[in-house]
């Protein structure tokens, strides 16, 4: 269990979409270096919660600060947070008009103001880390889903963020490609990166998570270390959910 300083602090967060309340009174603290896995049935607000952390969704009430920066309407704060928070999406969202290498360098060059050669050196280094250095000159459409998702992870890492968010990174993948992405994520976890993952991959969760969070209907129902969470969850709902997804 990492005992770093708190890096994400969420207090009493509410989020409404019109009349629909997607998040209710969420409080969660993530320490530097901690790996948090969030699970729960679909529509429980997991994705909305992590999307609030880099302000892709605007929270309606409560407080949220990342690395000491308070997230509010201040555009400068939002961009500062986004530079420190990488995000990996279910649908990869690579830039289709750019090559793999350009996908990885556009952020560092335009946002971090690195030189082209520095950015490319860094990009190749991270492509190595996700095990696809040979694909640098290709376009995303020429890669398999698993390769695209690894490029997406590398793209986020090229910004050298302090926190990585994963929004169901393996849900859109063919089964045979899930492991190559999870392997990269496990390796990333071993470097001490702070990670918040929304996923149904419980094998991965057991392996890397420091903290499991179970959500339902916009609330955090249970927060526990994986040992307790999987063997002896305190809430009935959580037990039922685990039974359902661990059945096979």
């Amino acid at each position: 269990m990492p005992d770093g300083d708190p890096i994400i602090e969420i207090h009493n967060l509410d989020k409404f979409f019109g009349d629909f309340q997607a998040l209710s009174d969420i409080s969660l603290t993530v320490s530097s270096g901690e790996r948090v896995v969030i699970c729960g049935p679909s529509g429980s607000g997991k994705s909305t919660l992590i999307r609030c952390i880099n302000r892709l969704e605007e929270h309606s009430a409560g407080e949220l600060s990342v690395d000491g920066i308070k997230l509010n309407d201040e555009t400068r704060n939002i961009r500062a947070v986004r530079m420190e928070v990488g995000m990996v999406f279910q649908q990869f969202n690579l830039f289709p008009h750019l090559t793999v290498l350009e996908n990885l360098t556009v952020g560092p060059i335009r946002v971090r103001k690195l030189s082209k050669s520095q950015a490319e050196e860094r990009a190749r280094q991270y492509l190595e880390r996700v095990h696809i250095p040979e694909q640098a000159e290709k376009y995303p459409a020429q890669l398999s889903g698993g390769q695209q998702q690894r490029v997406a992870i590398a793209r986020s890492l090229c910004m050298e963020p302090r926190i990585m968010l994963f929004d169901e990174p393996t849900s859109a993948l063919d089964p045979e490609m899930i492991n190559e992405v999870l392997d990269v994520m496990v390796e990333l976890a071993s470097t001490g990166m702070t990670m918040v993952c929304v996923t149904h991959e419980m094998g991965f969760a057991r392996k890397v998570a420091d903290t499991m969070v179970f959500m339902e209907e916009g609330r955090i129902v249970e927060t526990a270390p994986p040992a307790t969470f999987f063997s002896n969850p305190s809430s009935e709902r959580c037990r039922m959910f685990l039974d359902q997804i661990l059945e096979h």
Binding site: R79, F89, N93, L94, V111, R155, S156
Partner: peptide, 21 residues
């Protein structure tokens, strides 16, 4: 919309999103 989100999540401003993505 995913392209916007990806561009914003790497810290691009709205202008940069338009211009590069």
């Amino acid at each position: 919309i995913g392209q916007w989100e990806a561009a914003k999540s790497i810290g691009m401003s709205t202008g940069q999103c338009y211009r590069f993505v």
